[in-house]
Design a protein around this nucleic acid. Structure first.
Length: 1243
RNA sequence: GCGCGCGUAGCUCAGUUGGUUAGAGCGCCACCCUGAUAAGGUGGAGGUCCCAAGUUCGAAUCUUGGCGCGCGCACCA
């Protein structure tokens, strides 16, 4: 399965003399010198003499050095140490990949060792092979099996709809949904992952309509509900393949074969049960609702759908006079002025609303005969006068309350007989006009309009509320009825002859004209605002329209839902009291009905005689009803078409045919109501409906409720998050189920934006298809980008560039370390399987049983440091992941890999390159073996730590480091191991801190050099460090690591400065965090006092006594303790120094002639190497060098170090001549002219 | 309009309970290394922490008010 890493053929070529032979070098990796030497000796029975002969022609002195270097690598290192390997490689010798494993004398045997690693990995290809391995090896199933007895981690899959293409946002949710179950499984929990599909709803119908080329409900009915439903059921799976491909491709482990499907009979019956429960508890009722109505399509739209369709349009804006009536019912010359942008609602006017506590004015037009008197709110009067461009005077001021109760003449007599309006008795006593009366309302504002609001209850939610409130004032049945002269198709009925049969919005102009003709139009203009249109048919404006609907009394459960919500662990936290909490606070009853076809049928049957209803909890319960009939409709259909899914028998139209005897009236039949339900109810019922509970699945539900973890994007706040919480609270709230349920933790993901920071959109082409990302960078790259790129709740900008750039910092770096390890382990024959019989999962304790393994305490400091970092990181990652902070955990992991790559491997190179076998035998090199064990353990542990994040690449590494070596003795997959929790006993906090100081000092040293333009190539005599506040122990430790710092900084000597005052000044800084609470307002004074005090004296006093008393400027004193101040060191002027909070590093910038000469020579070497590269010379190509310079200094330096230069540059000859004899143009070497002539030595 | 969130380096983003010199990656510049090599490494430059006021000894962080962006609700008679 790891075909991508098939080892190419390798061959061994030993060359004597100078002839270079091209050999096959599959991965371009040259061997260390000692390996060649060992190899020659072991496999070809050659000794050092022969070896030296192989280098014949190089000059005996060099050959001797080579041989010596091979045997005594320690001595060969240092400035000239590179000679040996370079020279040897130049002999044109290549090693096979398994030098010590393929002796020619022995027959070949299978070697359980690491496969070679490609330096430049092809992640997409690798992932394909890993995915196949998982599939064929049933690794996901095995990962579950080994945890069956573990604790449960319950995860719910929010069902995506397979009726649309998956897009990058789904990649994010699927990544997060995969991470935590994988992690918890590795930690020991049993985490079932049942997939699910949301299959109902308008989008499916729309898709089918598109296919059929039809649009409206009438057209669907004409096509036939039955075939239409069949089409819907087929269409649900339209993009199934894409979804399955994505799921596997991104490495989302979930059981697709056991997916729950919302249209399946068992699912539908669970939903029925839930609805029946609600019905029986009196929580399901029928009422009116003003909905956004798509008249042409004959359906209400959900708020989400409405939100998609807002467009800016100019609508007519009319100011209409409503003349007040006198006692006799005659219109007076005094009128209310109402404002509306929907003139078509005026024929259905029923009330006018004012605010009682608002001041109104009566305006009379001046300079005209028979002037009108207009009543408007005082704050809006000026604006209206301005608009009309007419002259008015204010003749009276009155509070709104005096208008309340007055009758007026509505603009149309549609529903009103001439004369006085009908009166009716109030429940509170007395009587009043049923309609066309002024009412008081708090929602009246002075933001716009006139302060008098036209109320047409049929066409506005607020308006409808007024009607309901008014109805409540009258005795039952005698109050105002809803008046409406608009048909469901959006046309006026015959009740309003002027517009009869025409779409209401098309009648605005005629209505306005009519009002104007009757002298009632005060003003008219265009009003630009946003208005919703159908998102499917954007030429169709939506209208608000009253519909009958079934409601769930969710608002009655507001407090319970809030209490439940309060216990949920929302991430980010602000969702709880912010967006989601606010939504619950303003909760209104859930309008459940959808007058559509493809959805869960509302399981309510009504008596055709009495209208009484009952709910049916299952199909079986329906069949058990007396006199049931109509089930044959489905049976006949099934007989005609055996392919027909049995699940459809609980759907329209079949279910509508099923009737039974009414228990409410003799001879009457019970018939199902026509509606289907809001598909969000389907999804919210998922916690139990996925198991078909309570009709079946008792055990599963008991085990899998509530969920420990769910995650979706923020758009689910009022979608799936709400539907789940509401249903669970209503159904299970009064049982002994402790909140929270049905989910405990919810990560709310931010929305993903396109490359340009705008919403992703196909038409704008501002994002790359996931498939392109997968094929180019791989799924792990995308996963890492999501998990480590930003906190999950921020709006992620999905850009190819960011994804690409996230690869090197982690994936590639990890891969490079891994590749480094394998290359040298193979060369050195580090074979853990030969040393360890019972590897287990190759944890620390397992490795301890390996031959040659040394306890960490006995290993080098670098090894102890590495394992400290490793275990500290593991512990921190577990802590973070346990609280769902994968972003923080990923950062920690990335830092760990950085530490391995940039410090452990770099500082360990000498050990890996050292001579001697990596074994514990008498001839072996224990240090080297330690290094291998340390790196091996580190890599394996990192692989496990990273496995939930980047499951593919970690699997590939595990398959090689563990399985290739140990075979069936180890788990076949990294996902079948335990997550490392980090062992505190392996963490040496002192060492970690001290190593950080070394790294800081090294970095400062380089900075100091850079500031003085002293390149690292220039050796320096000395570097001194002054530590600010380090403990004596830490300082002593650092002093004992002089070699390390010298090596890093290319200096001859390193020491802790004995006379720091030469270089630095010390000052004391108050530790504000400690002193602030102690001193409060005196802090600035204390700070001044500390600043003015003589720092050395004060510090001495503090160190001696532990405390000191400061006299504050302006009187008073303050006692400070040693820990209240920090020592800060600042470099004095004139020194090559760099400082950080914890140290100052001073480099000796004075150069001796010897140092300068060394520096010059290294410059020359660098120049030659660059030139070699420019000439594109083979690594092994030997050259003849000729230098020419007029500079005596450079010439002298070169002559002194000519051997060194020749060795470094693979020169067989090197000579210096005067510049005049130069064959090429001179270049500049630190101000000295030098002509370099390179001739390749040919065979 | 109301609500929620965001605004930090050229770009993408971190920044834990308020604390002294605000960080990372990429890009850029310079350099190192040339035995992880079509790699790797180091250093540097780069900031009005959106603006203003306030609280505080002290504000990127808390409060208020603006401005800008995103999202949700609604578009309202």
């Amino acid at each position: 399965m790891l075909a991508a890493f098939q080892e190419p053929a390798a061959e061994v070529v030993v060359v004597t003399g100078l002839s270079a032979v091209k050999t096959l070098e599959p991965f371009g990796v040259g061997p260390p010198a000692h390996r060649l030497e060992c190899h020659l000796r072991e496999n070809f029975q050659v000794g050092p003499e022969t070896h030296a002969m192989a280098c014949e022609g190089w000059g005996s002195s060099r050959a001797t050095r080579i041989a010596a270097g091979a045997h005594e690598p320690q001595a060969a290192r240092g400035s000239g140490g590179a000679v040996a390997p370079v020279a040897l490689r130049s002999a044109g010798v290549r090693l096979p990949f398994r030098p010590s494993r393929q002796p020619q004398s022995d027959p070949p045997r299978p070697i359980p060792m690491f496969d070679p690693v490609r330096g430049k990995p092809d992640f997409p290809a690798l992932e394909a092979s890993i995915a196949a391995f998982w599939r064929e090896g049933e690794i996901y199933e095995k990962s579950l099996d080994r945890r069956r007895s573990g604790g449960r981690f319950v995860f719910y899959e929010g069902p995506p709809t397979a009726n649309g293409m998956p897009h990058p946002g789904h990649c994010l949710t699927r990544t997060i949904k995969d991470l935590y179950p994988r992690y918890r499984t590795m930690r020991g929990d049993f985490c079932e992952r049942k997939a699910g599909w949301d299959t109902h709803g308008l989008p499916v119908e729309v898709e089918v309509c598109k296919e059929l080329g039809i649009h409206s409900k009438a057209e669907i009915e004409a096509y036939g509900v039955e075939p239409f439903i069949h089409k819907c059921q087929e269409s649900v799976w339209r993009y199934m393949k894409e979804w399955e491909t994505l799921t596997e491709r991104i490495g989302f482990w979930i059981d697709l074969s056991a997916a729950y499907v919302t249209y399946h009979q068992s699912y539908v019956e669970s939903v029925w049960w839930a609805l029946a429960e609600l019905f029986n508890k009196g929580l399901l009722y029928e009422g009116h609702k003003i909905v956004w109505w798509w008249a042409q399509g004959g359906t209400a739209l959900s708020s989400g759908e409405v939100g998609q369709g807002y467009k800016e349009v100019a609508d007519p804006s009319v100011y209409v006079a409503f003349p007040l009536l006198d006692e006799a019912g005659r219109p007076t010359s005094r009128s209310l002025v109402a404002w509306t942008t929907t003139p078509w609602t005026l024929p259905s006017n029923q009330f006018a609303a004012v605010r009682s506590d608002l001041e109104y004015v009566v305006l009379r037009e001046t300079g005209v005969a028979d002037p009108q008197e207009l009543i408007v709110a005082e704050p809006l009067a000026a604006a209206l006068i301005e608009k009309t461009k007419r002259q008015f005077e204010i003749i009276e001021r009155l509070p709104g309350s005096t208008l309340v109760g007055r009758s007026y003449q509505p603009p149309f007599d549609t529903f009103r007989p001439a004369g006085l309006p009908a009166m009716a008795p109030l429940t509170a006593g007395g009587s009043t006009a049923v309609a066309w009366r002024v009412v008081a309302a708090d929602f009246v504002t002075t933001d716009s309009g006139t302060g008098v609001v036209h109320i047409a209850p049929a066409f506005g939610e607020v308006d409808y509320g007024v009607l309901v409130a008014e109805q409540a004032r009258f005795a039952v049945g005698s109050g105002p009825q809803l008046i409406n002269c608009v048909a469901p198709d959006g046309t006026f009925t015959d009740t309003f002859p002027m517009g009869s049969g025409r779409f209401v919005k098309d009648c605005d102009r005629d209505i306005t004209r009519d009002i104007k003709a009757r002298g009632l139009l005060v003003h008219q203009e265009q009003y630009v605002h946003d208005y919703p249109f159908c998102w499917r048919a954007d030429a169709d404006p939506l209208i608000q329209y009253p519909r009958q609907s079934w409601f769930i009394r969710t608002s009655q459960f507001r407090e319970q839902m809030l209490a439940n919500n309060a216990r949920i662990n929302w991430l980010p936290e602000h969702i709880k009291d912010g967006r989601f909490g606010n939504f619950l606070e303003t909760n209104v009853d859930w309008a459940l009905s959808r007058e559509r076809y493809w959805g869960t049928p509302l399981p309510i049957w009504k008596c055709e005689a009495t209208g009484k209803a009952e709910a049916v909890p299952s199909y079986a319960a329906l069949l058990a009803k007396p006199g049931v009939a109509g089930t044959d409709v489905f049976e006949k259909a099934k007989a005609a078409n055996p392919q027909l899914s049995d699940d459809l028998k609980v759907h329209k139209p079949y279910i509508d045919a099923v009737t039974y005897d009414s228990p409410f009236a003799p001879e009457a039949r019970m018939r199902r109501v026509t509606e289907v339900i809001d598909c969000w109810f389907d999804s919210g019922a998922m916690p139990f409906a996925q198991w078909g509970w309570p009709h079946r699945g008792q055990e599963e539900f008991a085990r899998q409720f509530p969920a420990d973890f769910i995650s979706e994007a923020i758009d689910q706040t009022r979608g799936w998050f709400y539907s789940q919480l509401a249903i669970s609270t209503l159904l299970f709230g009064d049982e002994k189920r402790p909140y929270p349920h049905p989910f405990k933790t919810c990560i709310v993901l931010g929305h993903m934006l396109g490359e340009d920071g705008q919403k992703m959109s196909k038409s704008r082409r501002n994002y790359k298809e996931p498939a392109v990302i997968f094929d180019t960078y791989g799924a792990d790259a995308l996963r890492w980008f999501f998990l480590a790129g930003q906190a999950p709740w921020t709006s992620i900008r999905y850009s190819e560039r960011s994804i690409r750039e996230s690869v090197p910092e982690f994936l590639l770096r990890l891969w490079n370390v891994y590749s480094f390890f394998v290359i040298y382990a193979r060369i050195d024959g580090f074979d853990p399987a030969a040393l360890l019989d019972t590897p287990g999962s190759i944890e620390h304790g397992d490795l301890a049983k390996a031959g040659g393994w040394r306890p960490v305490a006995e290993r080098s400091e670098l090894d102890r440091w590495m394992l400290s970092e490793l275990n500290a990181a593991a512990a921190e990652m577990v802590e973070r992941l346990d609280r769902y902070d994968h972003f923080g955990a990923a950062g920690r992991l990335s830092a760990l890999v950085e530490a391995v790559s940039n410090w452990f491997v770099r500082r360990s190179r000498d050990r890996f390159w050292a001579a001697g076998k990596a074994d514990s035998g008498p001839d072996g090199n224990r240090e080297k073996l330690d290094a291998y064990f340390t790196l091996y353990e580190t890599l394996l542990t990192i692989t496990k730590l990273a496995a939930p994040f980047v499951p593919f690449v970690t699997e590939a590494i595990w398959r090689n480091l563990a399985v290739a070596a140990f075979g069936a003795k180890v788990p076949e997959s990294v996902h079948l191991t335990d997550y490392p929790a980090g062992s505190t006993s392996l963490v040496d906090a002192d060492l970690v801190r001290r190593m950080a100081i070394v790294r800081d000092v090294s970095s400062l040293g380089r900075a100091a050099r850079a500031a003085e333009k002293l390149k690292v190539r220039q050796p320096l005599s000395k570097v001194e460090v002054i530590l600010a506040d380090a403990s004596p122990e830490d300082a002593a430790w650092l002093a004992s690591h002089a070699d390390l710092v010298c090596d890093e900084l290319n200096v001859k000597q390193f020491e802790i400065c004995r006379e720091p005052d030469r270089y630095i000044t010390r000052s004391l800084l108050p530790d504000l965090k400690k002193l602030g609470p102690k001193l409060g307002k005196n802090l600035p004074k204390a700070r001044d006092a500390i600043a003015k005090a003589d720092a050395p004296t004060l510090l001495a006093a503090l160190t001696r006594d532990g405390r000191a008393t400061l006299s504050l400027p302006g009187g008073g004193e303050a006692v400070i303790e040693r820990d209240d101040v920090l020592v800060r060191t600042t470099a004095k002027e004139g020194w090559a120094a760099a400082e950080s909070p914890q140290a100052v590093v001073v480099v000796a910038s004075q150069l001796t002639p010897e140092l300068v000469a060394e520096g010059l020579v290294r410059e020359v070497v660098h120049a030659v190497q660059s030139e070699r590269k420019t000439l594109d010379l083979d690594f092994t190509a030997r050259i003849e060098l000729e230098f020419a310079t007029d500079s005596a200094e450079l010439q002298s330096a070169l002559e002194t170090h000519l051997d060194y230069v020749a060795a470094e540059t693979l020169a067989t000859q090197a000579a210096c001549r005067p510049l005049s004899a130069a064959a090429s143009e001179p270049i500049d070497i630190d101000g000295h002219p030098l002509a370099i002539t390179i001739r390749q030595v040919t065979a």
